[in-house]
Computed example of a mutant assay.
Amino acid sequence: MNATAARRHEVLVLGAGYAGLSAAIQLAARTRKRGDLRVTLVNPYDTFTERLRLHLTATGRQTAELSIPELLDGTGADFVRGWVTAVDAGARTVRIDDDRVLRYDTLVYGLGSVADTAAVPGVADHAYTLDGPQDAALLADRLARLDGGTVVVGGSGLTGVEAAAEIAESHPELQVVLLGRGEPGTGLHPKAKAYLDAALARLGVQVRSGVEVAEVLPDGVELADGTVVEAAAVLWTSGTRVPPLAAAAGLTVDERGRVVTDGALRSVSHPDVYAVGDAAAIRQRYGVMHGTCQGGMPTGVHAALSILRVLAGKEPKPFRFGYYHTPVSLGRGDAVVQFTRPDDSPRRIVLTGKRAAKYKETVSAAPWPTFARMKKMPASGAVWPRGGRYTRIRNAK
């Protein structure tokens, strides 16, 4: 080993979601001409999961195959395919499922959230989820084999709404029932909520709010009041959880297991660890951020810039983020877009119908071109999509 390799600073990025991939590309692109830093990205799959489009996969629609190694090509970053099984924050090592042990000097923890299949009995055994392309494809196969019957979507949040609308439109022979404690579209402006409600009604989605699922059964769901809703398939979108790896590693986490960060996105207990995306409990003036692509990519970019500042002997700058919009697809060719204040509260501005669908499609497609732009960025700037536009950040120096 030569002297340069021995002095090389190892940055390990766990998870190639919107946040982790943003961090890896930013770091690699900015340091590819340096020999004193190496970036390694670890992910279970070599294709990028477009979580914003998994409800399409669940109805059998084809989405693009996006190769992570191809995207990283030319940046200087290494790619390791594998499942992370343990993090040793004391030894600064990560173990993956083939028993390889990877060493790091700086860790970017981006192992995001999955559906919470443990909170309600029977979910793990009998319900489908949208945690990845394979899970969505299993549901698509099940739906394609049904001649009729009922599909229950458990969870009336926006993921459940999008999935229920997509299934109802793609499979008009099926009755779709959307179950949840709250009403769909809660938190939207009344105009946006009214449009969403009308779209679900037009598609024939039966909405049952104010209900709680006590158990998922092999052939339906049992509600807290003892009522059984028969179903040929159950899709679970109610609640998320994060892997217990951060807590097991001794990192300070919140009640949901997310890494608690300081203003620069560093772990408050282990400053050599940065947490991004759904894996992080990031506090802003309006509260703790909730996980979205909209917020995930900026956290990855900021973590990369913070790492570079620290390595240059400077203090990292605090992360500041404000929400911009909430786009919700309502089948193909229809959507509602709620524009928001920075704290995610609704503004009066709302897009609906075909214009909203086109806007939603543009936003959903934006991350991959943005990643490609990041590869070519000079050291002075970073970009990510905001409402279909690009916002440039200049805080690397």
Rank of each mutant, 00 (worst) to 15 (best):
Y195G: 03
A16S: 12
G180N: 04
F339R: 09
E230S: 13
A168T: 10
E10M: 10
G122P: 03
A28I: 04
G74C: 11
G295W: 00
D78C: 05
G15E: 10
S345L: 11
G296T: 06
E215G: 05
K314C: 13
A144D: 07
V207P: 02
A304R: 05
T240M: 06
V260W: 08
A198W: 10
R142D: 10
T326C: 09
R8T: 09
Q175R: 14
A247F: 02
Y359P: 08
Y324A: 02
D254M: 02
E230P: 05
V94F: 00
V84Y: 02
G322T: 08
L143K: 05
L111T: 03
L330I: 06
A140H: 01
S306G: 15
V363H: 10
A58E: 01
V336T: 04
L107M: 13
T59R: 09
H325W: 00
G250L: 08
A246G: 11
G250V: 03
L174R: 04
A366I: 00
T227A: 15
G15S: 11
F339E: 01
A19N: 09
K358R: 15
Y104D: 10
V13P: 00
G220I: 04
P369L: 13
V120F: 03
L102D: 09
P271S: 14
A249E: 12
R309L: 13
T49H: 09
E50L: 11
D147Y: 05
L330P: 01
P121Y: 08
T117A: 12
M377L: 15
V152G: 00
V253N: 01
D219H: 12
A248G: 09
A248M: 11
L311G: 04
L54V: 08
A249F: 08
G226H: 12
C293I: 09
V228D: 06
A163R: 03
A201K: 12
R394M: 14
E222N: 04
E255Y: 05
R181F: 02
K375S: 01
R30G: 05
K376S: 12
M374I: 12
D225W: 11
A248W: 03
A247W: 00
E230K: 11
V101F: 08
G155C: 10
A247K: 07
A5K: 15
F319L: 04
Y274L: 14
I25C: 11
A140K: 00
L196H: 04
R38T: 10
V234Q: 07
I96K: 07
G20I: 00
K354M: 05
Y359C: 00
K360Q: 08
A165C: 12
S67C: 14
P243H: 08
A124I: 07
L138T: 02
P327L: 02
P298N: 11
D147I: 09
E183N: 07
K375H: 05
A118D: 14
L200E: 04
L107A: 06
A248C: 11
D343L: 12
T57L: 07
A201F: 10
A115P: 04
P298Q: 13
L71P: 02
V120R: 01
G210M: 09
H290Q: 15
V253L: 08
E162C: 07
R145E: 05
Y274R: 08
